[in-house]
Design a protein around this nucleic acid. Structure first.
Length: 307
DNA sequence: CTCCCGTACT
DNA sequence: AGTACAGGAG
């Protein structure tokens, strides 16, 4: 690589950062956990709820949740059944259980304060690489590269001119994210960068039909320069169908239990009406029990976990 | 890599 | 009907 092209890359990067920061200032969605209006715990709750779930659906759940359980201690003390019920139709209810387990660890081991290191955060239930990085950046203002599906797609398009493919983030993708992350010279440039790249991916640089006409960094986007090669190319293998899967059956069982009066339980015989295939149903009930999402009483009744 | 869940898009 | 969504755990 010549000195000239390296210089050009540096200028492209600088322009991109400036334009994106300005775009963020003018266009950031006014989500209730943004702009310092909540605690680090509130940020964590928003991140967990947002895993594989659209933000627009998260907002009302987050608002009610935080009003009811403002901190880790409050959530730690709640009955499991209440937590599962409050999770409602957000999906992936094991997230709710893990969030409460996380709250209990934070309460007992960290005196109701989220830890400030990546190693400690990633050791908490339900917190992986993305969520740990997001909390460090968005809640604590630390300089760390946040890597999620949006950021991978945007960085790959803008700087490499190709679609981000495959499952887990590659070492090359991580290296790129770290290379373009602003130095923390002043007031949280890296935080704004993480948030604005992610936001751009969510509302402009979307997977299937990006709004390049409305993109603040279109002039410096390698993907657009190259004619958007392979646009919308499958990022992952075709997903497992939902109809008929254990996920559907588990969802049906849990929904039935959520609808019962508080503390009530459902005879297994009645649960049998929820699904035709009794073998699959029994297997799903057992797996829900294993996951701690339901309890099976001695007289073979199903209910949401007490305690 | 596979499974986990529910909704809103095209 | 298919697909995407601020992922995590086994």
């Amino acid at each position: 690589m010549s000195a000239n092209s390296a210089n050009t890359d540096a200028q492209q990067l600088k322009r991109t950062r400036i334009k994106l920061a300005a775009w963020w200032e003018a266009n950031a969605r006014d989500l209730p956990w943004r702009f310092g209006r909540t605690s680090p715990w509130g940020v964590l709750v928003s991140e967990v709820m947002s895993q594989q779930t659209q933000m627009s659906r998260v907002v009302p759940y987050w608002t009610d949740w935080m009003a009811r359980w403002p901190d880790a201690q409050a959530l730690a003390d709640a009955p499991k059944a209440d937590v599962i019920t409050a999770w409602g139709r957000l999906g992936y209810p094991r997230r709710a259980l893990r969030l409460q387990e996380c709250a209990r660890v934070v309460t007992e081991q960290y005196h109701d304060e989220l830890p400030h290191t990546y190693e400690e955060l990633i050791g908490l239930p339900g917190i992986g690489d993305y969520t740990a990085s997001a909390v460090l950046s968005f809640a604590f203002g630390k300089r760390i590269a946040v890597i999620d599906t949006n950021i991978r797609r945007v960085l790959s398009r803008v700087f490499l001119g190709v679609e981000s493919l495959g499952g887990a983030a590659s070492p090359a993708e991580r290296a790129l994210a770290n290379r373009v992350l602003p130095e923390q010279s002043g007031a949280g440039e890296s935080v704004t960068w993480n948030q604005s790249v992610m936001e751009l991916g969510a509302v402009v640089c979307t997977a299937k039909s990006p709004l390049c006409e409305a993109c603040p960094v279109a002039d410096d986007c390698m993907f657009l320069k190259l004619g958007r090669p392979g646009l919308g190319q499958r990022r992952t293998r075709p997903r497992q169908r939902f109809q008929g899967t254990d996920r559907q059956v588990r969802g049906l069982v849990l929904a039935a239990l959520r609808e019962l009066p508080a503390g009530a339980s459902l005879p297994r015989k009645d649960a049998g009406k929820l699904w035709n295939d009794q073998v699959q149903l029994a297997s799903c009930i057992a797996s829900l029990d294993d996951d701690g999402l339901i309890e099976i009483t001695e007289d073979d009744m199903l209910r949401l976990p007490q305690g």
